[in-house]
Computed example of a mutant assay.
Amino acid sequence: MSRAVCPGSFDPVTHGHLDIIARAARLFDEVIVAIGVNPSKSRLFAPDERVAMLERSVAGLDVANVRVAGFTGLVTDFCREQDAQAIVKGLRSSSDFDYELPMAHMNVALTSVETVFLPTATGQSFVSSSLVKEVAAFGGDVSAFVPPFVLDALTARLAERT
């Protein structure tokens, strides 16, 4: 069985993330969406909220071989625990590749887990969780970039902070 991990912070999940997850699900027998929990980083949504949003989001995909899990520490340790052979990463631009390539080399050196890079879908290359949060914080319309229930949660969370 081929198993891949699709790691990220998903704060919040975007349509770009979901596209990469769905495409990975067609390439591997099982895909584990791994939500990184780093206590030293400040996130808009708590780990359990991000897990719930991802679970609801992937339930809406036309795939049955995706599950969601949180993890702490190194993604390679998580991959070993899950018996995953690959890490799937989406690339929006050449700068993403420049950032991700050294990590891919380190990951394979540590655990023999290969990294598979998938280019983002046309029209999604500029979308990031950080940009979505920033635009939404200034009242911009980000409804095209996140599922409706994520937009509701994002709007509510940002309203709490003002």
Rank of each mutant, 00 (worst) to 15 (best):
S2C: 04
S2Q: 07
R3I: 02
V5R: 10
P7K: 00
G8D: 13
S9W: 03
F10D: 07
D11C: 01
G16R: 10
A22T: 00
R23N: 14
E30L: 06
E30K: 07
V33R: 06
A34K: 07
V37H: 14
V37R: 11
P39N: 07
P39A: 08
S40M: 07
S40H: 10
K41F: 08
S42C: 01
R43G: 02
R43V: 04
R43W: 00
A46I: 02
A46T: 13
A46C: 00
D48N: 11
R50H: 07
R50E: 11
R50A: 07
A52R: 05
E55S: 09
S57N: 13
V58L: 08
V58Q: 13
A59Q: 11
G60S: 07
D62S: 11
V63R: 02
N65W: 02
N65T: 10
N65E: 14
R67W: 02
V68T: 13
F71C: 02
G73V: 04
G73Y: 02
G73E: 11
T76V: 15
C79L: 01
D83S: 12
I87W: 03
G90L: 05
R92M: 03
R92P: 15
S95I: 10
D96I: 01
F97W: 13
D98N: 12
Y99M: 04
E100F: 09
P102Y: 02
M103R: 07
M106P: 10
M106N: 10
F117H: 12
P119D: 09
T122Q: 08
S125D: 13
S125V: 09
S129G: 14
V132T: 06
K133N: 05
K133G: 05
K133S: 01
V135G: 02
A137S: 13
F138K: 05
V142H: 15
V142C: 10
A144T: 00
A144E: 12
A144D: 14
V146P: 06
P147C: 01
P148T: 10
F149R: 05
L151G: 04
A153N: 08
L154A: 05
T155F: 11
T155M: 05
R157M: 01
A159G: 06
E160D: 15
